[in-house]
């Protein structure tokens, strides 16, 4: 990360100073509600009927790390769609910035850095709630969880930002949310173990990037991680990030210097 990219990051932070309170409330309230409703309410039912399916842990302990990964992805994708689109077509901050000495790729890097910051802080808030519920074993685990969730967010943000810069209609952003983010959210093992899916569908779940994030967070949280699997997860998420950056380099140049 270089100095010109930090200029875009600092612009984002100036804007964020105006809205951070709202996002902070959401970052705390969201996990609170989910863990109370699904963990407390639904979890009681699940635990009564079949704790064996989850490897003898309570449903809420199983759910929380998955939800952490999924929620961080959601935050990251939200930050990567609307605001990027607005910067090109709406408010036009990108168009203003491209007239200065920064290059399009600097804008990509700076914006992604800001999204990484947002993903990290919202993961931090989530893990704080988990700690409050007694759902994290140690501060070390908690920190590792924040890192893994933030990486998951960035892995999604990198390609999403690269794509969103070229989007012409806001409805495309909604479609992406409805047809990509929501199915991933629901089907990547957030709420249940993918082992319970029909055998035919299981490889599909493994192929979704979110599953790698979910499984990584869950392994860290429950202490069930195997080194080989952890490396696979990390590699997948990093690969997605790097690919996104490579694509973003091209799309930003093409769309901001048409």
């Amino acid at each position: 990360m270089n100095a010109p990219a930090l200029r875009e990051f600092s612009y984002r932070m100036i804007r964020y100073r105006r809205t951070w309170r709202g996002t902070a409330v959401v970052s705390i309230a969201n996990p609170l509600m989910f863990l109370l409703a699904l963990g407390g309410g639904l979890g009681t039912l699940v635990d009564r009927n079949g704790p064996a399916a989850l490897g003898e842990v309570s449903y809420v302990s199983f759910l929380a790390p998955g939800l952490l990964a999924a929620a961080t992805m959601q935050t990251a994708v939200l930050e990567s769609t609307g605001p990027v689109y607005e910067s090109v077509r709406g408010r036009g901050n990108y168009r203003a910035a491209t007239a200065t000495s920064v290059q399009p790729f600097h804008l990509y890097q700076g914006h992604l850095l800001f999204i990484a910051f947002r993903a990290t802080t919202s993961a931090l808030a989530f893990v704080t709630v988990m700690l409050a519920f007694g759902l994290s074993r140690s501060p070390g685990t908690a920190l590792a969880l924040v890192g893994a969730a933030a990486l998951t967010g960035v892995a999604f943000a990198a390609p999403t930002v690269a794509w969103a810069v070229g989007v012409r209609r806001p409805s495309s952003l909604d479609s992406a949310f409805r047809f990509v983010v929501m199915p991933l959210y629901l089907l990547s093992g957030t709420f249940f173990s993918v082992d319970q899916l029909p055998a035919a569908v299981r490889p599909l779940a493994w192929a979704t990037p979110l599953w790698h994030g979910v499984d990584l967070c869950r392994a860290i949280s429950l202490g069930t991680g195997r080194p080989a699997m952890t490396i696979v997860h990390l590699c997948c998420l990093v690969a997605l990030t790097v690919t996104g950056c490579a694509v973003g380099r091209t799309t930003y140049r093409r769309h901001l210097h048409p």
């Binding site: 100036i14 804007r15 105006r18 408010r91 036009g92 901050n93 168009r95 203003a96 007239a99």
Partner: peptide
């Protein structure tokens, strides 16, 4: 530029 690229919120 021809179009306004000011940030209206700032």
């Amino acid at each position: 530029p021809q179009d306004d690229t000011l940030d209206a919120e700032l």
